[in-house]
């Protein structure tokens, strides 16, 4: 479980997060949604520790992350996997080297054991026969899969995903969404996904937090969204004419 309490964050006098309190449950796919510029990426990066909150605190299973020292944070970071928007694979390393890096750095396993684990993770994300390729030789979907494999190679307890579907076609998006959801259930991970892809919301949104102008505006599940009368949420989720018609039909 990851909990944020009264988190505020400003950049150069501009408030980006305003007193956000939120709880993300273990074993569920928790989604942060919101318009571009609403502060969802800042919230995710604050939760993961890449930004320090101006006020408030962050708890990882009741351990206050924001009050920890450098070495203690480092220990928690080994339990964190993160999938970045662009994959963030190391350009100078092959697929195998990218996935193996956390094992090289933080385990005492033999080379054989490491390769076995890497191959298992690559098979888990349905990416085989790409071991020797460099990130520049991979498609967008393959990059995301390698990023997922790297994120899960150390068996993390917390998984953060920053717009895992951006730039992907709808079919590949569903594959990636389902993969993240399967991994979350399989390993009982606390997963937080930052997205503005409504297909993802409706596909895997077990818990959804809607951020609007730096504030937590609404929270619920994908089923709650359909019946919600929150204007800002409806304007965001059902923005297109087709989505509006679908909502009206459901309400009727």
């Amino acid at each position: 479980m990851i909990k944020g309490e009264h988190i505020s964050k400003s950049f150069e006098g501009r408030t980006v997060l305003n007193d956000i309190s939120v709880e993300f449950e273990t074993g569920k796919t928790n989604l942060i949604i919101g318009r571009s510029g609403s502060g969802k990426t800042v919230l995710l990066k604050t939760l993961v520790g890449l930004h320090s909150p101006d006020t408030g605190r962050i708890l990882y299973d009741d351990v206050c992350y924001t009050e920890l020292g450098f070495n203690e944070r480092k220990a928690i970071r080994k339990d964190i996997g993160m999938i970045f928007q662009g994959g963030a694979l190391l350009d100078s390393s092959t697929v195998v080297e990218n996935v193996k890096l956390p094992l090289d750095l933080f385990t005492e396993q033999s080379e054989e054991e490491k390769l076995e684990r890497v191959n298992f993770c690559l098979r888990r994300v349905q990416l085989e026969n790409a071991d020797h390729l460099y990130p520049s030789e991979l498609s967008g979907g393959m990059i995301k899969r390698v990023a997922i494999a790297r994120a899960i190679v150390l068996n993390p307890r917390y998984l953060f995903c920053d717009e895992p579907n951006s730039g992907l076609d709808p079919q590949t998006s569903v594959v990636i969404d389902n993969l993240i959801q399967d991994i979350t259930c399989e390993y009982n991970i606390t997963t937080i996904i930052n997205t503005h892809d409504m297909n993802s919301v409706m596909e895997i949104g077990e818990k959804i937090v809607y951020i609007h102008e730096g504030k937590k505006w609404w929270e619920g599940s994908k089923d709650d969204i359909l019946l919600s009368e929150n204007k800002e949420l409806n304007d965001f989720v059902f923005a297109s004419a087709m989505a509006k018609r679908a909502k009206q039909l459901i309400v009727k």
Partner: peptide
């Protein structure tokens, strides 16, 4: 610089590197 703007450095930091 490219590693910084493509979040590769953030990815290393998240790993605890």
């Amino acid at each position: 610089g490219t590693m910084r703007i493509t979040e590769q450095i953030d990815a290393l930091e998240i790993m605890g590197v």
